[in-house]
Computed example of a mutant assay.
Amino acid sequence: MKTETPPASLRPELPHGSTEMPRPLDSAALLGARGEVEITHQGETYRLRRTRQGKLILTK
């Protein structure tokens, strides 16, 4: 099966100088048994959590 490359406008931006796509992370492995994780970004703390419906919510 041939996969088509999406147009540049739909492709995620790569970090400067990177030639590889970011590796996917499994949400269950990332969130663990608690279903949530705290992420620090530029001095701010965010919480990523899984809802009862299986959706992901990121809050500051």
Rank of each mutant, 00 (worst) to 15 (best):
E13R: 13
P15Q: 03
G35Q: 01
Y46H: 01
T51M: 03
D26L: 15
L48I: 03
I57N: 06
P6Y: 15
R23A: 03
S27D: 12
P6F: 15
P12W: 11
E38R: 10
P24D: 08
R34S: 15
I57W: 09
R11P: 05
R50K: 15
A28N: 14
T59R: 02
A33D: 15
T40F: 00
L58E: 03
S9I: 12
R52W: 10
L30G: 03
R11A: 08
E4H: 14
T40R: 01
I57S: 06
P6E: 15
I57V: 14
G35V: 03
Y46S: 05
T51P: 08
R23Y: 09
E38P: 02
K60E: 04
T59M: 05
T3E: 14
G43E: 00
A28G: 12
I57H: 07
R47L: 12
T5M: 14
R23S: 10
A29C: 02
G35W: 04
E20S: 14
L10Q: 13
Y46P: 06
E38K: 11
Q42R: 11
L58T: 08
T59L: 04
S27A: 15
E4N: 12
G43W: 06
A29Q: 15
Y46V: 00
P24N: 07
K55H: 14
L10G: 01
G32K: 07
L14E: 00
K60P: 06
L48Q: 01
G32M: 07
E4F: 15
T45P: 01
G17L: 00
T51Q: 05
P7E: 13
G17R: 06
P15D: 06
M1L: 15
K60V: 03
E38W: 13
L58P: 02
T59Y: 01
I39C: 02
P12R: 01
K55E: 13
Y46G: 08
L30A: 07
L31Q: 06
L58Y: 00
T5K: 14
L25P: 10
P15M: 02
L30D: 06
S18F: 04
G17K: 06
L31M: 03
T5Q: 10
Q42V: 09
T45W: 11
P12M: 04
L25I: 14
Q42C: 08
Q42S: 07
P6A: 06
E13L: 14
R50L: 00
E13A: 07
T59P: 04
E38I: 01
P22C: 01
E13W: 12
G35T: 09
D26R: 10
A28F: 13
I39K: 01
L31S: 08
R50E: 07
E20V: 03
L31K: 00
M21N: 11
R34Q: 11
K55T: 14
R49Q: 13
E4Y: 14
D26E: 11
M1W: 12
P22R: 03
L58V: 06
R52C: 03
M21W: 14
L58I: 08
E44C: 00
G54R: 10
R11D: 01
G43Y: 01
H41E: 02
R47Y: 12
D26T: 12
G35C: 05
S27Q: 09
A29H: 13
T19S: 05
I39S: 06
S27R: 13
P7R: 09
A8C: 07
Q53W: 10
K60A: 10
R11F: 10
R11I: 02
V37Y: 05
P7G: 02
T51D: 08
M1K: 13
Y46W: 10
T51H: 02
R50P: 04
